[in-house]
Amino acid sequence: MSCEHHGHDNLFLPREARILHTHRPTASEKHFTLQLADGAPLEFAPGQILEVGVMGYGEIPIGLASSPTRTGTFDIVVRTVGRVSTAINEKEVGDSLWIRGPLGHGFDLDSLKGHDVLIVAGGIGLCPTRSLIQYIEDRRDEFGRFLLFYGARDPLQLLFTEDRLHWRASGDVEYFETVDRADASWTGNVGVITTLFKKVQLLPETRVVICGPPIMFEFVIKELDRLGIVRENIFVDLERRMKCGVGKCGHCQINDKYCCIDGPVFTFSEIQELEEAI
């Protein structure tokens, strides 16, 4: 079974990645720390995705959840929803996953650098943005003010407990969190994520990154319009059925764009004219 006939790469040939560490942040999510089996570093940019699979079960697109500035290993968070994610989440330390990537077009770091940055993450949308959060923390002096809004449905759905403790105490990030519905233990902010906007003053030049369920976009954009933030400076991370991840199979098309190679990160000005985007 030769993998590189005629010296050409096979776009679909996955690489083996060993599971070094796992953690269950919620009942349905599993956080993996991985390393390529050949020991090579995985080079990627925040916001890029991997196709992650188990042979025999298939592959799914997953955003990288750690920063390339933290070398050697990389993280993903997988929610059990279907056939492939179930098979992935049954894997334990010492097992392998098969990955392709990094794929796609991540956050445009050049247009973020030197500016205030606000990240608005809803639910599992925190995972792909964690890559950017860590990146900014590690290169803190290349950015202006750094704010992070994180919202979840209820306290049990909140991810990255350790990270959140760290962000709360950190002088590097102004961190705000909220839940749609509180429980008895919750003493923090209650309400949808847009309620966090009244807690801060933002300059119109702020660069904003949004990742979360489609319903959230609409409301966040309204707030940003009110603040006078232009849509060229708003970056959204979109979710589609990326199957091949290399711009061929057609499943992730949004009008004439392929989410997997034209995105998954788009500026809002790029997609607002696309009827099928949100």
Partner: peptide, 26 residues
């Protein structure tokens, strides 16, 4: 791992399983 011709006219072509667990057909 095999690829099969697919067709964007068929019903499920643009259906994704959302992170929340439901499905959405674009």
């Amino acid at each position: 791992r095999t690829r099969y011709w697919d067709a964007c006219l068929t019903r499920e072509f643009a259906t994704v399983t959302m992170a929340g667990g439901g499905t959405e057909n674009f």
